[in-house]
């Protein structure tokens, strides 16, 4: 589904990604771990098409298409979803209104009719259950005055609404207490199918106890320096990142 080859990306004059390779297939969950500043969030931003990041080398193929040639909204319409580390506030715009606009624009791009109010509402009700989110929250201005947990739950709700093929969760666990973490993770697990893929970007192993990955990669200084299965995450949790840093230094 997604093939990243020798990806180099910079912001202003700082090269952050320095030759990253990754292959993600449908039905898989990949965890990207790594110390602060290793380039995890940059990878998420580049995949979503954030303008500040410039890709200087390498290629990204998504479902047979050159992802880098697509505008951010086109990527979204092709099924790429980013759950933001810091969801943005939009005063005066309810989540419901926001999602209605998004869902209908995505549908339009696929040549489908916009959903009428009744179908939209029933779709929304169904997805609300998945992430245990209350409608009163969805009536409020998007992310404005939301707690950390509410924001992240709202991100997963949006993911459920948009039914992405490739979802990237950027530090979705940050700022969550254990109950919120469990709810968010349960939501994500319910959205796992054999047809979609999920990339979980995280600093800690904690989230991976709930969202069990098929593969774990360690990102360090802009490259993936180690890949393994879920056991690798446990090893990292026990030994910390210094162990990886030492290993890279030796090589």
């Amino acid at each position: 589904m997604l093939t990243i080859k020798n990806l180099h990306a910079k912001i202003e004059d700082n090269e952050i990604l320095k030759g990253l390779n990754l292959e993600v297939n449908a039905g898989e969950v990949h965890a990207i771990m790594g110390p602060n500043g290793s380039g995890k969030s940059t990878l998420a931003s580049v995949l979503a098409g954030r303008e500040e990041f410039e890709v200087t080398e390498g290629e990204i193929t998504y479902q047979g298409k050159n992802l880098l040639e697509l505008e951010p909204e086109e990527r979204a319409r092709e099924g790429v979803f980013l759950a933001f580390q810091y969801p943005v506030e939009i005063p005066g715009v309810s989540t419901i209104n926001f999602m209605k606009t998004a869902v209908n624009q995505v549908r339009e791009s696929r040549g489908q009719e916009p959903l009428d109010a009744v179908s939209f509402l029933s779709m929304m009700k169904e997805k609300m259950k998945l992430v245990e989110i209350d409608q009163s929250l969805l009536n409020r201005s998007l992310n404005e005055g939301f707690s950390g947990g509410e924001k992240k739950r709202n991100e997963i709700f949006q993911m459920a609404m948009l039914e992405p093929k490739l979802a990237i969760l950027d530090e979705t666990d940050s700022g969550l207490d254990i109950d919120a973490l469990r709810i968010v993770a349960n939501g994500v697990n319910k959205l796992r199918t054999k047809n979609n893929a999920i990339i979980v970007v995280t600093h800690y192993q904690r989230l991976l106890e709930y969202i069990v990955p098929d593969f774990v990669h360690v990102l360090y200084k802009g490259k993936i320096v180690k890949s393994g299965t879920k056991e690798l995450a446990l090893e990292l949790e026990a030994k910390g990142y210094d162990w990886i840093k030492d290993q890279v230094a030796v090589v």
Partner: peptide, 30 residues
């Protein structure tokens, strides 16, 4: 109007014009 707000909309599949409309109408809602 923040670029962050616009990007958030784009990432959900909303084009830029609609994003501006959404943000401005939210602002003027009252």
């Amino acid at each position: 109007i923040g670029e962050d707000q616009i990007f958030y909309c784009l990432q959900r599949g909303i084009d830029e014009e609609s994003a501006v409309a959404l943000i401005v109408n939210g602002y003027a809602k009252e």
